[in-house]
Design a protein around this nucleic acid. Sequence first.
DNA 1: GCTAGCAGTCTCGAAAAGTGAGTGCCAATA
DNA 2: TATTGGCACTCACTTTTCGAGACTGCTAGC
Lengths: 362, 362
Amino acid sequence: MSANSNVPESLPRVPELDKRKAYILTTVVYEYIATAEPVGSATLTQKYNLGVSSATIRNEMAELEARGYLVQPHTSAGRVPSDTGYRTYVDRLMPAETLGSEESGRLRAEFMRAGRALDEIVEQATRLLAQYSQSLAVVVAPSKDSQTFRHLQLIWLAERSVLMVVVTTAGVTEQHVIEPAVNVDPDDLTRASNALNRRLSGKLLAELDRTAVSDVLAAMSPPLHASLVDGVVAGFARVRRPEERRILFGGAQHLLDQPEFRDFKKLRSILDLVEEQRTLYHVVLESIERGESTPSVRIGGELELDDINECSLVTIPYRMGDRSLGVLAILGARRMPYGRMMALIAATADHLSQHLTDVELP
Amino acid sequence: MSANSNVPESLPRVPELDKRKAYILTTVVYEYIATAEPVGSATLTQKYNLGVSSATIRNEMAELEARGYLVQPHTSAGRVPSDTGYRTYVDRLMPAETLGSEESGRLRAEFMRAGRALDEIVEQATRLLAQYSQSLAVVVAPSKDSQTFRHLQLIWLAERSVLMVVVTTAGVTEQHVIEPAVNVDPDDLTRASNALNRRLSGKLLAELDRTAVSDVLAAMSPPLHASLVDGVVAGFARVRRPEERRILFGGAQHLLDQPEFRDFKKLRSILDLVEEQRTLYHVVLESIERGESTPSVRIGGELELDDINECSLVTIPYRMGDRSLGVLAILGARRMPYGRMMALIAATADHLSQHLTDVELP
DNA sequence: GCTAGCAGTCTCGAAAAGTGAGTGCCAATA
DNA sequence: TATTGGCACTCACTTTTCGAGACTGCTAGC
């Protein structure tokens, strides 16, 4: 068989590896990703145009193992990439991929079907990412405090009971019940709502702290009762809730298709992580702290979490307008088609960001 | 060992089974639920006060098998309950259980921590049900159209763009963007909002169809533009969305603890069902169509779904005030502690209903 | 520097053998 | 007539054994 088209004949330069070693590493990673079987020297000479015998490959592979790029599961087995091997492959050897226009078009069309509601859109993104990646999709839902305040309404419910409804430009509405110490005149509520809308509409929720709110309400005459002002401040704080972000999962069943997860212990520890949410939430957020807009990859031990040290995580942030709202992630076996996954997650983030930007309220 | 305290000495009458057969069936089910191993005649004589020899038990068990209450996995194994066996146990033999007051108290306290937001409360219910049952919890979120309309606000966003925000007494807010054919005066929006609130507040969302809305808006002078009226009607229809109900899952990892799911095929088919959602949604809703408020149990083949014919499903509806909002369910192995599960799900539904009723808006 | 050949190592799967739990049946018994 | 002890038999499960196959590292020769 001739050289596989996905393994380019001419490779980028990797200072510490000569051309042949780089090519061998590339083919080992590629072959192992495709077959899930340790790769032996004979397989390589048969399937790829190496121009040398298997004995030479053996020598080279031994060298690559000594330098930490490959490992042997046991003495009489072929080689498997190490974290370093995968890392070198991803950073320097792998050809960049982009999603085919046909697939990209389908993805876009699916987003259109999600409607305008933020929750729905994010759920749809999770579903699509899981489906297209055939892997576990993890999505951190939009943070509240990076959304723009659009409108507020204080609604008289009963004596000493006021409902505060807040709308953001992301089309998210949140409500909060205020129980002021005195009965409040519905007209005052309308006036307060109007004043807050006039003065604060368009600001980030994160900016709407006690000072901002009191400043607006203090200017009213007659002044509002302090307990109501406190209630509105508390309402904004509650709506904002930067600490509580929803995290969505999809496609857990795809893990069962990977031979590396045919082990109830591993499966259990991953599902526990999913259920517990908090750890994965932090791991996913860490991955994009640098604020890049290209996919970020963390491989095996790089995740610094024993439960998933045989997994890799691909992450990318998504936006509404120019504000970063949340993160998409794919968690899969370390043996994943990195090029495809990165192309897929980048395209998904693009379409998601575009769709979110389109549905933002004026 | 003496008779186990969970298997009562005196059993209810089962017309078609004599006292001893009923007792043997009870102990077989009880023992199998506890150990997950087929139950043999020797085990029964050793662990329970039967007063007869194992040979007699063998005769009785053969009889119970002939009548369809027990089955033998293979010739030289003990017996396992059939669907009929479990059904008889659940309906007539099993002692009723209630949740201990300590556990019930903890459950109530956990609900308190969920706050007032409907979404959060339902998510909390899912988590708690999964955690306490150590099983897969399935929760059908509240239907929109059984909620009471409380307040509406039409908000001017831009020319030919109006945001409609609807609040229900369940404290759920939904928004819908209306794009009328003409520019609308913000004052008209306020008047329309006031009219709709005055006339329709307190009605079920399900009642707010085209007629109800047009009747109110037709009385306005000057009349609203027809396209805006259409928009409001569409908005109510969209908010109501009876066909789209969220369904929540929790505790999938607990399946891995049951020996009956140590099989990737079975596991896969259940996780596929979870991911697909629609089938389980229908199965869960079917279970409570009778409108009872006690737990309903469906065992194995009774579910009429090949993928889960080795599972049982316990369901119960939950309420806000006197309206049924949704359903709680536990999906687990057929070999589940039915008494405990039924007590648990009943208590959870009670606390959930109580908490929801408490946080309903006036 | 490369290669052919070979001995050595280790995993994996199939086959074989042994183990034990549990049954059904029967003749004896109260 | 219901019950019991005894016994032969069955069958899944575990352990062991064994051979095949895959791959390596090494060495001597080109």
